[in-house]
Amino acid sequence: MDFDTLIFKTILLVVIFLISLVVAMYATYGERKIAAFFQDRFGPNRAGPWGLLQPVADGVKMFMKEEIIPVFANKGLFILGPSIAMFTACMTSAVIPWGGSLELFGKSYSLQVADLNIGILYIFAIVSLGVYGIMIGGWASNNKFSLLGSVRAGSQMISYELAMGLAIVALIMTNNTLSLNEIVVNQKNFHWNIFYQPLGFLIFLTTALAECNRAPFDLAECENELIGGYHTEFSSMKLGFYLFSEYVNMFISSAVISTLYFGGYNIPFGESFGLAPNLLTVLGTVFLFAKIIFFIFVFMWIRWTLPRFRYDQLMRLGWQWLVPLAILNMIITGAVIVFA
């Protein structure tokens, strides 16, 4: 890799990191506004015009709060927990193709930090590491409620990973590749995977909700049985990291869903408009972000519409419905590929 590519990738990495943090920050604002809309309230409207400065105020509040580490907590692991949660949330963005390639100074740069030939599996591996942040934090708090909350979150995440993996297998079978960039290129001109894998998409969306610990799968936090769940003992920015990593995860999941099933950065029939390649790339990235924001909205829509599950219902849905459905989807996909 030559020097200017290295510089470009570094800048891209920093920009993507900042964008994901800003999107996550304003997702908290969006969440509150949407909740307010669903419940016929105003939502935050005091800080700045339409309450737009509310996330900044929340951030400052999180930093200024008193930092408490319980006396009997395992101090090192107590700090390690939220750090892992945030770290794994931010790591996935490296393999997502955020756009086509830009022509700068006579050279072409791809808007993807690393085009791994096993991109999907990389995301999957990082997601499976995300469990540790929750489990270590919950255990290190030395509190029964935290431990139960983290066990709930952990077992939920590893149960739904299975169905998620099986849903992705069917997608890989139709696309013949594991590279995210190639999957996007395959979906050119409205050959979106959603039309070929509708069942797979539904399974993936459900498991993505469960992986983010979002309602209706937010059993890890449960006021009447578990207080705050795994982050009961956390305060100040450590709590902030846990809450914030959920929103970063939501952003990344939306990006992955748009990339895998909705054509990613590809504008359908974009080449036929006769635009300059650079402009087309930028428009493609904007298009991708529009889809991402739509899916973040869907996540919130589901949260404020559906009632939550009971824990045994959640496990039954995961193991007895989603896994067999995903296997069925795989068999049908295989049969269609072989016989059609």
Binding site: L121, F124, L129, M135, G154
Partner: peptide, 24 residues
């Protein structure tokens, strides 16, 4: 690379989580 990622998914992401469960 494939072996590396599968190693992370299977051993680190699944088996060790169960270990951690039991020990916790």
């Amino acid at each position: 690379q494939f072996l590396a990622v599968v190693h992370v998914i299977v051993y680190t992401g699944a088996i060790m989580v169960l270990f951690l469960f039991v020990i916790m």
